[in-house]
């Protein structure tokens, strides 16, 4: 049994529904990539303003600094108090530079983990909001342990004793996304993408030229629709036809409704069950042959 836009559906219904949606959408993977990166696409702070109240931002990783590419803190959604953490790309050039275009460094991932542990201490569910081209590929990031910080988050998130909902609103760029993305529920906006490598990066390796990015985008199966079919994500949140940027109020309302429903569904599970289910969820991921 799976949930599409809040409705429980069987596997058969799920397939039918996707075929219908595909017919009505008729849009290439590359078109989706472009929408996911649209300059006017709502970013984390737009959802913070529209969905959450009483945001108390918390700063710093207690070791090196405060990465502005990932922000987080206490917040309220409806009557529910939560910890919300997300990549924030910035709305204009100044903000984008300050926030490094949402490309986090180790201190960003370590801050995120600190806040998740704080959420566990306060017994608050965690909502992580993913929107990044990837973790920052720079000298100082490597020097301070980019790989270690992502690895630690992924490992420790397996044992965080409160519900975690991961929401992909734009670009889910590889390890940089997964570093805050190990959730009990993974939700994606209908024009968001989630990929092991950027289409450009993949094309430049396997096609020997980045201009084949549209082919790579298709081959990589990076759209919400493709990932839903592969049982990677739990739910697709519908955007307005032209994309989320066309109607901020509408997409914020859809996201809010979905978050509240998922928070409710996760609220009555014991810690033991929650962690068992999280383990089983990730243990089941992947497709391989047994000869």
């Amino acid at each position: 049994m799976v949930i599409v836009n809040g409705v429980k559906v069987s596997e058969k219904e799920k397939r039918q529904r996707l075929t219908q949606e595909k017919k009505s959408r008729n849009i290439s993977a590359w078109d989706v990539v472009k929408i996911s990166r649209h300059p006017k696409r709502p970013i984390f702070q737009d959802y913070l303003e529209r969905i959450f109240t009483n945001f108390v931002e918390l700063h710093g990783d207690r070791a090196f600094g405060d990465d502005r590419a990932i922000i987080g803190g206490f917040a309220q959604i409806g009557n529910q108090k939560v910890m919300v953490i997300g990549h924030n790309k910035g709305k204009n050039t100044t903000e984008q530079i300050e926030r490094n275009f949402g490309m986090a460094k180790p201190e960003g991932y370590r801050k995120a983990l600190r806040l998740m542990k704080l959420a566990q201490r306060f017994n608050l569910p965690v909502i992580t909001v993913i929107d990044t081209p990837g973790a920052f590929p720079g000298l100082e990031a490597e020097e301070r342990g980019q790989a270690e910080s992502i690895a630690r988050n992924i490992t420790e998130m397996a044992n965080i004793e409160v519900p975690i909902i991961s929401l992909v609103i734009g670009e889910g760029g590889s390890g940089g996304a997964l570093g805050i993305g190990v959730g009990d529920r993974i939700l994606m906006l209908s024009n968001a993408i989630y990929s092991v490598i950027s289409p450009e990066g993949c094309a430049s390796i396997l096609w020997r030229d980045a201009k084949f990015a549209p082919d790579a985008a298709k081959a990589l199966n990076i759209t919400a629709e493709a990932l839903y079919k592969l049982d990677i994500i739990d739910e697709i949140i519908e955007e307005p036809t032209e994309g989320a940027h066309a109607d901020y109020q509408q997409i914020a309302a859809n996201v809010k409704r979905s978050l509240l429903r998922n928070l409710r569904n996760l609220s009555n599970i014991s810690v033991y069950e929650l962690l068992e289910q999280r383990f089983e969820k990730y243990a089941a991921m992947g497709k391989f042959a047994v000869d």
């Binding site: 490992t155 997964l178 396997l206 990589l220 199966n221 990076i222 992947g286």
Partner: peptide, 16 residues
């Protein structure tokens, strides 16, 4: 790369 996000999720699976 040839297994797309299925491969990416192996990071979470192995770390679990």
């Amino acid at each position: 790369m040839q297994e797309g996000v299925l491969s990416l999720m192996q990071m979470a699976k192995t770390c679990a």
